[in-house]
Design a binder for these strands. Structure first.
Lengths: 205, 205, 205, 205
DNA sequence: TATGAATGAGCTTTCATTCAT
DNA sequence: GATGAATGAAAGCTCATTCAT
């Protein structure tokens, strides 16, 4: 009924930005459920009403922030995948790709963790993440398909899903679940697994 | 002030069990945040007050249920890992292990998904999951260590973490994230990746 | 979803009664729109939550109070109409009937006025009032029908509606709209109009 | 602080008119309480701030609209009453007067219904309606007084109030309360009642 | 004069938890 | 042990009104 305001003047652009930034920070720090609108507006230095002028409700704010984040930041890591020439791909190339994914998690680890957590209980959050995941899987798939004749991969689509999933979640685990092991060791070994999956080594140990 | 009641008589044991079962079902169906105590006690056919006789609060209920579930059901899948003789391990053995993990997720997929989602915002939930994860990683690690000399694995601990993570999350993804691909294809390809990581194939394509 | 509580214990019977009474008073004094739930619960000396244990919302409270009031108090005035023997009805009988209606308005004039005002903007309030109105019109209609052959009334149903309406609203007007004239004068003259409608007087002035 | 603006230039006259018209329509459609200032200014195609340039607040807008409406539209029906020569008044004359009142309710039935509803909770609204009512009652009273010696009316003032009230509310009821009976039947019978009150019929049935 | 972004008091409603019985 | 009525802090959201531009 009440249409949300579309900022036209610099003043209000500022207001919306301040709300978004405050929400981003608080969601990361205290969790989505742990943050209420009052806290957001207070941190943003803005009135309660302004919040609802720009966002229909808390949920819509979250969806917008997440979508922006994934589009602007997250995707970038996987986007350049097609640049690699799989015929000459080296172990270091693989390592470099994986390192980039790990780095992506450093941009806003808390926020990613908080929203990721909601995938399984919130269909709308999931939808946004899924769209992104499929884009990323597609990048991997294209890389495989391009050189399929040179690879011993039976099911490229399944492989793409699994590889994406593995890299993604190992990074995720490394960042959020304890610190029993250094990241570099995980990156190294994951690189090995993937590299030797693409480029079988000789059994001549 | 009132210490949490430890059920001794059959009648109250029944009460606690009924609360636990009702909560498990509702948490799975409606999510943790989506379930309130009134619903739990109503479904359990028990008075509101009884809830607090057995549980300090809603959170403690969740922790207890989760811990029980992981101990009694979840762990079982990985427990028998040491039975495998890695010298003679076949692709089908690997597939069988992975299939078991996938099966585990069928026991209570909704509940797992709901609680898993809270790992990243709730340290106590995370602690319980972490303990479990470490136990499972240990099983894999033992398997590797036993045959280390026969394998080309540089960093067994890192490998164990990654392998566990990959299997775990591919299963997770298969169950909860859309159904763009049949599980069997994921299981097959994941088995390939892991098997050929352990048992390098000849490069003689 | 949350079923409203049906009071079983004396303690809670008391609570519901206190809410109802407080609401009745406040609605009368400050108007329906002018009264909020906080005021009601405060006046009732009851917690906010208790309100919603007994009533789904403010609207439902109003409907219940109104329905009770009309059933228990309001109807009574018209109920005994059939006792009158129209063949021997006197001007004083008519006057007595009208006086009773006027008296009915003294029981809770403010509340009647407030709810009456909502008939035209609220279909549910109107439905309740309409049911009552039709019952009352029926009483008048029965009285007319019984003696139709002795009366010069062309359209008894229309007449019943009009007579009911006139008595009702003259009483209403007398109570709520200024005090430019004494009630007794209105009662007297209204009695005349109705009496001479039933019992035509001679034109021999 | 800022005095309410009195429109002098055509442009602003237009603005005020547009606000008034939009408000009239919305009040009629959605009720007074159901319409907010944003909706009004949006429908008027005017900025929020402009509203407060012309009206102190929402209430004042309503009062002005109502007063205008009663002065310009409503009163007209009763205004010509003195034209009737009561010595030769016919049943059709009475019917014609009543029909006019009924017609008046067709001009803006929703608006009348919405504002009428507020009489009993809002003294200022009531004041406006009362002034109007007294003007109308005066018209009837004059008609009676002019021919008092020819009539059998004991208390002309009371009679005027009652007659006005009856006509008014039967029309009101006919328009807003269900449709269990055709208007024409109500008009006919009401005309009978009033006509035979003025011009007693012979008892020679 | 006109604009529309910003304000914030105020409202309804929920629900984990307590406690008298 | 069990009951369920009562609690009240806290949350989300609305909207009449103000005021800088």
């Amino acid at each position: 009924m009440t249409a949300t305001r579309i900022p036209r003047q610099p003043r209000s652009k500022n207001t919306k930005t301040r709300i978004t930034k405050a929400a981003f920070t608080l969601f990361s720090q205290k969790g989505i459920h742990g943050t209420n609108t009052k806290e957001i507006t207070e941190k943003a230095g803005v009135a309660t009403g302004s919040f609802y002028a720009y966002y229909k409700n808390k949920k819509q704010l979250l969806l917008e922030i997440l979508e922006d984040f994934l589009n602007n930041t997250y995707l970038l890591i996987w986007k350049d995948l097609h640049k690699y020439d799989i015929r000459n791909i080296s172990l270091d190339d693989v390592k470099s790709i994986i390192e980039n994914v790990f780095l992506a998690y450093d941009v806003a680890p808390q926020f990613l963790s908080q929203t990721h957590a909601l995938r399984y209980s919130d269909p709308e959050i999931n939808r946004i993440y899924e769209r992104e995941r499929q884009r990323e899987v597609d990048q991997i798939l294209k890389l495989i398909e391009t050189n399929r004749d040179r690879l011993t991969i039976n099911d490229p689509f399944a492989a793409a899903i699994i590889l994406h999933n593995a890299v993604e979640h190992v990074a995720h685990t490394a960042k959020f679940i304890g610190s029993e092991i250094e990241e570099s060791r995980l990156i190294n070994e994951l690189s090995n697994i993937i590299y030797y999956y693409f480029v079988p080594r000789n059994n001549s140990k």
